[in-house]
């Protein structure tokens, strides 16, 4: 393959990705635009934790919050859409779970399967997790959902990295 050919393919890919990626970030993360534009939060740019929700909006029922994080790969910097299932447990502690299924990476939903209410459900191969993220034995996932590191500051919930938890 000639070098010239390779460059033009890569350029094409780059254009395609930038176009679609930018468009997507705009489309998927509407609720976050407000936060991103908030001048107080701007100072946090570059810090590892990102603001995701107002603490007063967090209930005992898991809710999904969307946000974005900057990622850099070899070619360009982009913003990756992320989400978290967030709720307060009986002790009043905040729990923020990654929605990425530990089987093969689909996005799980809360309470989506009528036969198994109050669980997280993965539509791909019907994996299930209890409310605290523990995988239900007999379904494909072998590990509990990852938990985000979090902190609360000025009434806002900030999330960091999603960390794996020990076995069920």
């Amino acid at each position: 393959m000639s070098n010239k050919h390779r460059v033009s393919r890569r350029q094409f890919l780059n254009y395609t990705l930038t176009g679609v990626g930018g468009f997507m970030a705009a489309g998927m993360l509407m609720p976050m635009v407000r936060f991103a534009l908030d001048p107080i939060l701007k100072e946090e740019a570059g810090a590892e934790m990102v603001p995701v929700a107002q603490v007063k909006d967090i209930t005992t029922e898991p809710q999904r919050f969307d946000f974005k994080v900057k990622v850099k790969d070899a070619w360009y910097e982009s913003e990756e859409p992320k989400s978290a299932w967030v709720y307060k447990n009986e002790k009043g502690d905040i729990v923020a779970l990654s929605p990425i299924c530990k089987h093969l990476g689909c996005t799980v939903n809360w309470n989506a399967d009528k036969e198994h209410p109050n669980q997280f459900f993965c539509p791909c191969h019907y994996g299930r997790y209890t409310k605290d993220g523990t995988n239900v034995p007999g379904t494909p996932p072998m590990h509990p959902l990852d938990r985000y590191e979090y902190k609360v500051k000025d009434g806002k919930l900030y999330l960091g990295k999603a960390k794996p938890r020990g076995g069920a």
Binding site: V20, H103, L104, T107, C124, H125
Partner: peptide, 18 residues
């Protein structure tokens, strides 16, 4: 084209295990 790519890309992200 942009619309189709945007949608399939997002679907892939959510259902990548299948």
């Amino acid at each position: 084209g942009e619309f189709v790519q945007l949608l399939t890309g997002e679907l892939e992200r959510q259902l990548k295990g299948r």
